[in-house]
Nucleic acid binder design. Structure first.
Lengths: 202, 202
DNA sequence: CAACTAAGCGGACTTTACCCCGCTTCTATT
DNA sequence: AATAGAAGCGGGGTAAAGTCCGCTTAGTTG
């Protein structure tokens, strides 16, 4: 007979103290970011402030970038929720084209909001997998629903994803030298995206 | 009277020994890359192998990424030369649309050829300035010549640049786990680019 | 050709990401 | 409640980027 509801299958799940420590570390990281900015988040500093060992931080997040990936993840989930189940035009219910445009606007705003964290989430040796992103899937589905049929959808989807995410990850200097340029950059990119989609769908 | 042809103006130019050392360092870096790969290029290792001090390396290139930027620069110049004065359709003489497609193909091939160096040329705090890139200017000019008139050309040009350069810089895992995927990735992206341009221009 | 000066050089020093491995603590099981 | 064994923890150790500053040298000037 089965001594447990799940005899074996998943490899046991995270231990309670580990989960607690993860939350503690993320909260501490958010504090440091709020107070001193992304650049001041160091592994030793974070561990010390959280009252934990450095090894623990690495065990939880794997690398410095991993911390920022984890921080992004929560907001990213919320964002995807708005896309999958929120009000139109971002959520379901609007015309596919309108949803595409709305998605671009929302995504650009999201990235602008999370610029430094998103940047810091990059790992030198394992860059963000744009190809496998939720963005790419969403774009592909909406283009299909919009009746767009074109050759090489594979590549097009990858490239549109890069068109959306790339400029903010590759280009705009997030540091602190252009605090004024960026609001304009957001509008510029939103308008560009809308124009691009309009051309492609038409 | 003027004791020199250029009394003052440029702040003197690079000293001969400095130039010699720069060349030496670049050549040494190329050697290390050829023998052991990009990851094995370290500042200490490079300095030692070149028989120079570490300070010199930093003075010349500013940062590790700077070395790779310098390495790319030479090839990048040659590439731009082919674009500006080479045979059509990449060079002048072909129809703008054909040149756009050819540019994309050539650029993707170029980036694939230089993938790891281009990646390493990224600086965490000062990412590649896609917005100010030669690619962006070229795309803009060719779209204009092709008679494409659309709102928000500003943003569109930035995004098309990212569509071209982004996937290879952000996405494809350059490390060594996908040695087979990449030739296909090149074709996929080339076809995607052609389809994208065809849609936009039409 | 001698002196002068700005540019260049070297390498010790600091900081930080990341590894390692013996010890501790949790949790499932009896 | 006791126990086994896996998961987690800690912090010292390593490697590599980047900084600093006193010494050296190329190139200019008289």
């Amino acid at each position: 007979m089965a001594p447990s509801v799940v005899p074996f299958g998943r490899p046991r799940g995270e231990r309670a103290d580990a989960a607690r420590n993860r939350e503690l570390l993320l909260a501490t990281a958010r504090e440091i970011i709020a107070e001193h900015g992304v650049a001041k988040v160091t592994m030793d500093g974070l561990a010390e402030r959280a009252g934990l060992g450095k090894g623990t931080v690495f065990r939880r997040f794997g690398s410095r970038a991993g911390i920022f990936r984890a921080l992004l993840d929560a907001d990213e989930r919320a964002f995807q929720q708005r896309v999958l189940a929120g009000p139109p035009p971002l959520g379901p219910g609007a015309a596919p084209v309108d949803r595409l445009v709305a998605y671009g606007r929302a995504r650009i705003a999201f990235l602008l909001d999370h610029l430094d964290i998103a940047r810091a989430a990059h790992d030198r040796d394992r860059p963000v997998a744009v190809a496998a992103d939720a963005t790419q899937l969403h774009i592909r589905v909406l283009l299909d629903q919009a009746g767009v049929r074109m050759p090489a959808m594979e590549g097009v989807a990858v490239q549109l994803t890069a068109a959306l995410e790339g400029p903010l990850l590759l280009t705009l200097s997030a540091t602190e030298n252009l605090p004024l340029l960026e609001p304009d950059a957001g509008r510029m990119l939103c308008d560009g995206w809308a124009a691009l989609i309009e051309r492609i769908v038409r």
